[in-house]
């Protein structure tokens, strides 16, 4: 896609250089004077860089510098005694990291527990979101009455503000007054006793359900767009050859969606693993142990115990883990594709 758009960009850039039509006489004079001073080759070379400077500056300011500050904090004992003057916080080297990965200690073992929960949560949520998204997109592929409405309807969870959606779920999951138990127990009589959803073992299921509800429309949207790009000729040709629906799905749809899926699964993984809003709004500051997701866990370990160095160290470990997974994933999926 990038390869195809590049010529357009070049054209646009040339147009910019040329001033987009006949330039006013005054400007022309300035331009030719400047052109006289700066060699043509240098000018040609520097323009793209000039154009991306604002983006790079913002990227540095918004992403890179805060990240580096976070990394720096992880080497300090940054407690309430020092937050007013960070420079006075004692340098403790790797000791914050040692505490975090010492799985025999209470801090380390609870971090490991939270990590394991998060891996399971992410695998389930991403898997289910992808599955629902794919099924939804494939079913919406053929034209039928009401398709436009259904497509819009499916996107509602994605369009709702996170807080509004998740707080509604937390009301629905309440034991005595929630709708979930009302339907399961009072109306369908599936369960004898009212289960808890927001505490105890079911809280894991609750957070997975809410997360899938929130993220499957995104998978649906992306895959629907991907499906539009598959030429109908393939399906027609295969139909003439007698391919079944399932065969078409396996041999045409899935392989053609492969590049889309590659990015989709990665993005879903990163978003889900890092998701803070869903568990925080659903459970509040203290999540149940069975649904102790890592982003809230780190928040709890640093913000509420006022130990920002330790929290930063955990964040850096999380970042390294996500980076490693991303690199391995990209290398593995790209290699397989070039083999094929």
């Amino acid at each position: 896609m990038v390869a195809r758009t590049t010529p357009h960009q070049d054209e646009r850039r040339d147009a910019t250089l040329a001033g987009g039509g006949p330039p006013p006489p005054g400007r022309r004079g300035l331009r030719s004077r400047l052109a006289g001073r700066i060699p043509f080759g240098l000018r040609r070379l520097s323009v793209p860089y000039l154009l991306i400077i604002p983006a790079i500056a913002l990227e540095l300011l918004i992403h890179v510098i805060p990240m580096l500050v976070g990394v720096g904090m992880s080497f300090l004992r940054l407690t309430q005694f020092f937050i007013r003057n960070w420079s006075a916080a004692p340098f403790v080297g790797l000791s914050n990291y040692q505490v975090a990965v010492d799985f025999d200690s209470a801090v380390g073992s609870s971090l490991l527990h939270s990590f394991t929960i998060t891996v399971a949560f992410t695998a389930l949520s991403v898997g289910l979101s992808w599955l629902f998204g794919t099924v939804g997109a494939v079913l919406m592929q053929g034209a039928f009455r009401g398709r436009g409405f259904l497509r819009t309807f499916f996107l509602v969870p994605y369009a709702l503000p996170v807080y509004a959606g998740v707080i509604t779920w937390s009301f629905m999951f309440q034991r005595d007054t929630g709708m979930v138990n009302h339907v399961l127990v009072d109306q369908l009589h599936l369960l004898g006793d009212r289960p808890f959803w927001l505490i105890g073992g079911n809280s894991f299921a609750a957070v997975v359900i809410v997360c899938v509800w929130r993220s499957w429309p995104f998978a649906f949207l992306i895959l629907m767009a991907g499906l539009q790009n598959i030429d109908n000729d393939y399906y027609e040709a295969s139909a003439i050859d007698g391919a079944s629906w399932w065969r078409q799905f396996r041999s045409i749809t899935l392989p053609m969606l492969r590049p889309v899926n590659q990015v989709l699964v990665l993005v879903l993984f990163l978003w889900t693993f890092n998701d803070f809003n869903t568990p925080y709004v659903l459970f509040g500051k203290a999540a149940p142990q069975q649904a102790d997701l890592i982003s809230v866990h780190i928040y709890q370990s640093s913000f509420i115990t006022w130990n920002f160095g330790s929290g930063s160290a955990m964040s850096v470990l999380l970042l390294l883990f996500l980076l490693a997974v991303t690199v391995v994933y990209l290398v593995a999926t790209s290699r397989r594709r070039s083999d094929a």
């Binding site: 918004i62 805060p66 990240m67 890092n274 780190i298 920002f308 964040s315 996500l322």
Partner: peptide
Amino acid sequence: AACGGGDT
């Protein structure tokens, strides 16, 4: 990652 860092 920046969001994660921001929380802490």
